[in-house]
């Protein structure tokens, strides 16, 4: 059995989610190869070669793969993937974009967002916004799978010494072109990797009030998240959304401030180790999952909390 892991990277650096995906591959068992497809991605390939447990790194360096356009990357992965027993990618926006296209090209079903490996062909994944856990078995020749990062502890980023091998793939498919991107800038830890997350909801009332959460987060070394209500109201950008349709987080500590706790929000954070809820409505559903609940006005509680920690 040989497993192909698609690296998540920015050409210059490897994204942390790759380490969780390799961890899932290690649970399946067998040789692990990592594919780094990009443009000018030598640095990311070097980092991939150092991951503990990786046997080989394949590098496809081509201008066509610069922005991970699925029309160009999927044929490459499908071509390479034919010889593997499993193809794994992180369930990031990139992984979700590319991998189903690969699966359809290989004419196999895909298994999305696994949270546990039962055996080489059996996996667990959440359905219905995390309100049920399905155990699924695949009989496909090549098992195509996306991995939910929070389900697997990352493997060590150092200690490996994999061989690096260049591969060539098909060029630009000519169906799509990258136009531009706007990335949100932040000095705080990345939301999906942070040990502590402080999130605000509709109760924050406006974007300006998020400064209270930023102050608390900076004191705790935490990332700041938000509920869909806060994003839709324009308080904060959408890449901060935690939930079924946003990011899935599982930090050591999740502090929900002014968040009622709708099913769709809980889907993104209920695997956190400790959940704290601060809400003035004592009937709010968030208190049903919170380890520590504080019924209080957040505008008084949050500044006080910031002073005390």
């Amino acid at each position: 059995m040989t497993i192909l892991v698609i690296a998540e990277h920015t050409n210059a650096a490897l994204a942390a989610a790759t380490l969780n995906t390799v961890a899932a591959a290690a649970k399946i068992g067998g040789d692990i190869h990592v594919l780094v497809a990009g443009a000018g991605c030598a640095a990311a390939a070097e980092a991939a070669a150092k991951i503990a447990g990786v046997a080989k790194v394949l590098v496809a360096d081509n201008a066509a793969y610069a922005h991970q356009l699925p029309e160009n990357v999927a044929p490459l992965v499908a071509d390479l993937g034919k010889g593997y027993s499993h193809i794994l990618a992180a369930a990031t926006s990139n992984g979700k974009n590319v991998l189903p296209r690969v699966a359809a090209q290989l004419d196999v079903d895909q298994i999305s967002e696994i949270i546990a490996v039962e055996s080489a062909d059996t996996f667990k994944r959440p359905i219905y916004a995390g309100n049920a856990i399905a155990t699924v078995q695949s009989s496909a020749a090549v098992k195509v799978i996306t991995v939910r990062s929070t389900g697997f502890d990352p493997v060590a980023a150092e200690g490996g010494s994999a061989a690096v091998e260049a591969v060539s793939g098909s060029a630009d498919a000519g169906k799509s072109a990258f136009v531009g991107e706007e990335l949100a800038k932040s000095d705080r830890p990345e939301l999906t990797a942070a040990k502590i997350v402080v999130s605000g909801g509709r109760g924050m009332q406006n974007g300006d009030n998020f400064k209270h959460l930023y102050a608390l987060a900076d004191k705790l070394g935490a990332a700041v998240g938000a509920s869909r209500a806060a994003v839709d109201a324009g308080f904060v950008p959408n890449d901060m959304q935690v939930g079924q349709t946003g990011k899935i987080v599982a930090p050591q500590l999740y502090i929900a401030v002014g968040i009622s706790g709708a099913i769709q929000h809980l889907a993104g954070m209920k695997d956190s180790k400790v959940i704290v809820a601060i809400n003035k409505d004592e009937e709010a559903p968030i208190f049903q999952v919170a380890d520590y609940g504080l019924v209080a006005d957040l505008f008084e509680a949050v500044p006080e909390l910031e002073k005390l920690v």
């Binding site: 196999v108 079903d109 298994i111 059996t122 959440p126 359905i127 995390g130 309100n131 049920a132 856990i133 399905a134 155990t135 699924v136 078995q137 695949s138 009989s139 496909a140 209920k270 959940i275 004592e282 208190f287 999952v289 919170a290 380890d291 520590y292 609940g293 504080l294 019924v295």
Partner: peptide, 19 residues
């Protein structure tokens, strides 16, 4: 090529406390 073997309820969180 994929079949569902079983569907379970997720592990319930133990009840918390109000401070």
């Amino acid at each position: 090529t994929v079949k569902t073997l079983k569907v379970e309820a997720p592990a319930a969180r133990s009840a918390g406390i109000k401070v």
